[in-house]
Design a protein around this nucleic acid. Structure first.
Lengths: 222, 222
DNA sequence: TTCATCTTTAATGTATACAATATTATTGAA
DNA sequence: TTCAATAATATTGTATACATTAAAGATGAA
């Protein structure tokens, strides 16, 4: 992506992630031009990329709208992620370098230190390190196809929303999975790594669906 | 996609599929404008979409190039397809309608009739019916996520190249899989359907890799 | 010759004017 | 009032001119 397009892409995406642009909202090119300070051409390029990444949907001659995720969509996303991320873990076991293993271990330990402090939970720190962890595994597969596919499946807002609902114990469980994944990779045991990863994603799915459904009940009750 | 963009998209894609634009070739916007008879804007939109569909790759400030698939890439694609299409078959078993089952059965029988004729093989007919078969299963899942993901994974040139190498016996095997899939779906047995589908795609993968590797040997020998 | 530097050329990136389409508002009749 | 038809407006789609960047070629010194 070129400079202006990149600027527009991240600005628009931030507004979607923060909720400033609500699901279903009509994003008009003119308004985005004012927001981003670039012309319509890069704004349109950014919108096309956001559609690829499934942040928005495009309707011919009508423009783009912030994607609205249904419960079924979210289930699908987690289910697909469970399958693809286990594939990643499996592959990573074959190709991962010692340096990458070291990095994974450091990330796991950094999160552990955070959890051991009797402080308030640093969710942003967790999210950042968690992203790094999964990215390293992804890199270790050396697969364009997997990378592109997962990139379009993984919806950062879903992950963030899930993590923010986590209790200390649930974050601990999640980091225990990370620890097991590192162990499996050190043993170069792809099946083990894949299995732990599947557990890891399914746990996230369960957590998300529980808090999502209960929040929907609350909304209905209001 | 709008009219002009659509026109450009299909024209450029046809030239990639036919081989007129070789893997690695630099697609210059100016030349595409002449070819398609539309301005640069829709040409660029079409190129972005072709990049999403992985026909081309984009390099910043350098333009777009026809994607070059490595052996590993192709392996990845088939492996991912095997997983995703089995997921599709599994889901389809839960949601498929009687009308859709009827259609699947008709397609399977149409291909069978073609195979029973002691004529030359109608590969284009097979490709078309095969595409319809998989599309109906896809529709039966009612999953945007699966549809979009598979859409970006399935590379028509790989499927076509595989099918054109098939012997009558291999096409028969493929259609036997289709028959089993219909049986599994009629029994509403998702696990069975998924299992047959996995076999189906892995067989295609084997076939492709064999003919691909032997053709590479020939090229090296020349 | 060969390499590095500069110049020229051609390509992509960006802005904007105009065209086609969809949405909204207005008017008038039932 | 309510609905349909039409006019006005806003938005997306397309073409094109200009800006920026990369590639190709020319020039000159070692």
């Amino acid at each position: 992506m070129s400079k202006a397009t990149e600027k527009a892409y991240f600005l628009i995406r931030e507004n979607i992630l923060s909720g400033a642009f609500s699901p279903g909202a009509h994003l008009k090119e003119g308004e985005l031009v004012d927001l981003c300070g670039v012309s319509r051409t890069p704004v349109r390029d950014a919108l096309r990329q956001l559609a690829t990444d499934r942040y928005v949907v495009t309707r011919r001659n009508q423009g783009v709208f912030v994607n609205e995720w249904s419960v079924d969509d979210i289930k699908d996303i987690f289910e697909l992620r469970a399958i693809l991320e286990s594939m990643v873990a499996d592959r990573a076991a074959d190709h991962i370098t010692d340096d990458q293993l070291l990095e994974l271990r450091e990330i796991q330990q950094a999160i552990q230190s955070m959890l051991d402090e009797n402080d308030t939970l640093k969710v942003d720190f967790f999210l950042h390190q968690n992203k790094r962890f999964h990215q390293i595994l992804m890199d270790a597969t050396h697969s364009r196809t997997l990378a592109d596919t997962l990139g379009q499946i993984v919806q950062p807002p879903l992950i963030a929303q899930t993590a923010r609902q986590y209790t200390r114990q649930e974050l601990q469980n999640s980091n225990d999975h990370h620890r097991d994944i590192v162990l499996a990779l050190e043993a170069r045991d792809g099946a083990w790594a894949a299995s732990v990863m599947k557990t890891h994603i399914i746990a996230a799915q369960r957590k998300f669906m529980n808090s999502y459904l209960s929040s929907e009940e609350n909304e209905a009750a209001e």
